[in-house]
Amino acid sequence: MSLKVDGVIKRYKVRAKKSTISALNGVSLEVKRGETLGIVGESGCGKSTLARLIVGLEPPTEGTLTWNEEVLGKSVRNSLKSHHSKIQLVFQDPYSSLNPRQTIGSCVAEVIKTHQLRAVDQVDSRVTELLSVVGIPMDMKNRFPHQLSGGQRQRVAIARALAAEPDLLVLDEPVSALDVSVRADVMNLLVDLKERFSLTYIFISHDLSMVRHISDEIAVMYLGRIVELGSWSEVLNSPRHPYTRALIDSIPDHTKIQGIDFENVLEGEVPDPANLPNGCAFHLRCPIAKPNCRIEVPALKVAKASHLVACPEVLK
């Protein structure tokens, strides 16, 4: 079982500005069963768009997504109906991902009832089980989302996703909105759940330290393309793409105190996705850019076994 994303392009028309935003510019990747793929990148890199395409909230403009040899249809409606229970999504903000007028118990129960995953008389015990799996005491069942802390809400969102008995869980910045002291708890929970239910994860974050902690493979995205892809040790211990290096340097590191040089600072900003530069999208900020980078879009090429890099300069 695996998820294959093949040459996916996603464009949005902005009517007001009469322009087109290219959110994804040809993304291909594969996630194998039981693995965790981490996707890391800054705002505008297309990571959340990719998440929405994978769960079928929107269709791709071009390219295909396949789940277990089965093409996820271009029509959104179809893909939701046939794959609802196998691919689930956990959103970043637990404050907006739960219906404010529904108790957390009924929010989880509704999933089970709608898809008739349990006999009617077993729904209640299943809800209790799911909530206890994510660490929510059962006496909180009748509470409303606003009576819960951010961490608890995110646990409920996870329980609701699990209620659909998915194989693949897409986690879109699941801990970024949480308090620092609560993040570790939720991260540990995610690791446990993966073992327990033999889940496959796609973990999306801007925070390389979280991605590093949970992922088997890592894809680094920049402006709608994957610029580096490989096992975490390859990508993080011997990063090749200049953007990956800059990203790693940018993580605030609490183990190096003071005296850090702010010298290798990556200059410039991410270009506007509505107005992409020619050639390599990174060349405007790249410390090793060559004239050719302004012309040719670099393809993802094999650097070493399973380690792919989209930069001809570092592959020479």
Binding site: L80, K81, Q88, S96, S97, L98, E110
Partner: peptide, 12 residues
């Protein structure tokens, strides 16, 4: 809102 998107993903 995310919660409407979530229930769409849940196939309601």
């Amino acid at each position: 809102m995310d919660y409407v998107k979530s229930v769409r993903v849940l196939g309601f």
